[in-house]
Amino acid sequence: MIGSSPDMDHLTAVPQIFRFRRRSEATDIMRIPAGARHIVLHVEEGARVAVAGNFGPSEVEAVLEEGAHLEILRVARADGISPCVSHFKARLAAGSCLRSFFFTRGESGVSDDINVVLEGAGAGVFLNGLHLLAGEAKAESTTNIEHAAPSTTSDQLYKCLLRDTSYSLFNGRILVRREAQLTNAYQLNKNMLLSTQARADTRPELEIFADDVKCSHGATIGHMDHDQLFYLQTRGIDKAAAGEMLTNGFVEDVVDRISDPRLKNEVQRSLR
């Protein structure tokens, strides 16, 4: 890994480029410097890397060469006055794999915009998101996945736990180009409302131009599940503890999809 400009200027958005050498395997998690505005992660052929950052308003670009693996964790606290806006773009060559986990908690605004292009055959992207919102927080997640090559996979799970008067909007667009036969594309957005005033909207959009594909999307918006609560209560667990168990379970279900144990640990620690 080579950092191109160690004394970067936070105010100008000159990209800071990190390059992960061919077939290398980074033993440590690469940390994106706090306050970084524009980052480029270039993962060369066959390299494997895990990246984490508490980056706030920012633009991150990832380029994955053939067979490269990148797992990226973004933890954001949305507590500022202005909304935390971040853009993430990725291009995936054949056989490469991108996993992401975007985690936000807080009481102000957050907006994530994710664009992924699967350019090479057999590339796969696994996008996961978790927003824990309270107060008047507003979260908007936009994902845009383009399947431009055959046998590519995308799998998205976005979850949102909403308290008070918070609001979440999920826009999920999947585009399957004509040449992207044998595509597998899945998208699931789940929202759990913990107050009567919390709200959520979900807008899936599928555009499919290939004929031999598997594509599905689903969304749920609802309060805590009564059947699950009852089940736990019939096992002696009181209602408050059962509710806490269910919200923890709702969160854990998506955290479980983080593949790198160090990154998973980091998220679990920040949840405590």
Partner: peptide, 8 residues
């Protein structure tokens, strides 16, 4: 019909 509880 036992209930599924994901994440627990």
């Amino acid at each position: 019909y036992p209930v599924e509880i994901p994440g627990v």
